[in-house]
């Protein structure tokens, strides 16, 4: 059987998710044996040509040029999977969606006039059809491995979509919210990170994004009872998945 041709692409992002792929030391050789890595600028200098059986896309759409490029990549790809918070929900750069672009440019860059950017940063799925999404900032290597195996087998990846709390209980971690009133986003956040923060005695800040049907309003009510202001509650969700959490909150009807 011919190895499927795989391409790894990047838009507005920090490269962290691509690095995560390169960090899969033990599995890297297996990936090369099973897949033909045809385009991956972080790892090889192979030029962009031909079509791809599977494209892994990192980064959000932040400039006009990217808006056109992503359509081109979609046209070259039989399947397209987004990797990470930027590609899946716009990333931390989507904070500008609720602010003024010129003001942000001025704060961040010494010569803001040289920066060409759209006024919004949006996920890939706002622009082209996405077959599957891997969440996380960065993505989890086990979930990527499961996805790559599932692709070869033609099955749905066994990546759970329930809350982080479910895995927090699997790991027998004393709930930070119930036992210490810490503002943990676990109840509205998709699992997938291996419960990293609560394992280290820290509340979750939502880098895997909202789970399907997240009841954001109810959790915020709870945080408010524990003394947080509305602004502080919004700051908790306004991070690398700000766009997804805010969208989920609006879809919830609030």
């Amino acid at each position: 059987m011919k190895r499927p041709r795989i391409g790894v692409f990047k838009f507005a992002s920090c490269d962290g998710c691509q690095l995560t792929i390169l960090n899969m030391e033990e599995e890297l050789l297996d990936i090369i044996e099973l897949y033909d890595i045809a385009y991956f600028r972080e790892a090889t200098d192979k030029p962009l040509r031909g079509e791809f059986d599977l494209s892994l896309v990192e980064g959000s759409i932040s400039t006009d040029r990217q808006r056109k490029e992503v359509v081109e990549i979609r046209e070259r790809s039989r399947h397209l999977i987004t990797i990470g918070a930027c590609a899946t929900s716009g990333g931390v750069q989507a904070l500008r969606n609720w602010a003024s672009l010129p003001a942000y440019k001025k704060t961040v860059y010494p010569s803001p006039e040289t920066i060409e950017a759209l006024s919004t940063s949006t996920p890939i799925s706002d622009h082209v059809y996405v077959d599957y999404e891997l969440w996380g900032c960065p993505i989890d290597t086990d979930a990527l491995a499961e996805t790559l195996v599932s692709f070869l087998m033609g099955k749905r990846p066994a990546v759970p979509v329930y809350s982080l709390c479910m895995d927090c209980k699997v790991k027998a971690i004393a709930c930070l919210l119930v036992s210490r009133a810490e503002p943990c986003l676990g109840p509205i956040t998709k699992t997938g990170c291996g419960v990293l923060c609560p394992s280290l005695d820290r509340p979750c800040y939502g880098c895997f994004g909202p789970m399907e049907g997240a009841n954001i309003e109810s959790l915020m009510e709870l945080f408010k009872k524990n003394g947080l202001s509305h602004k502080e509650c919004m700051l908790l969700i306004d991070k690398m998945n700000t766009y997804a959490y805010r969208k989920a909150r609006i879809e919830q009807g609030l």
Binding site: S163, C165, K169, G186, P187, G213, N215, S218, L219
Partner: peptide, 9 residues
Amino acid sequence: AKRDLECGN
């Protein structure tokens, strides 16, 4: 259901 977080705890 309005209050329920569906967290599964």
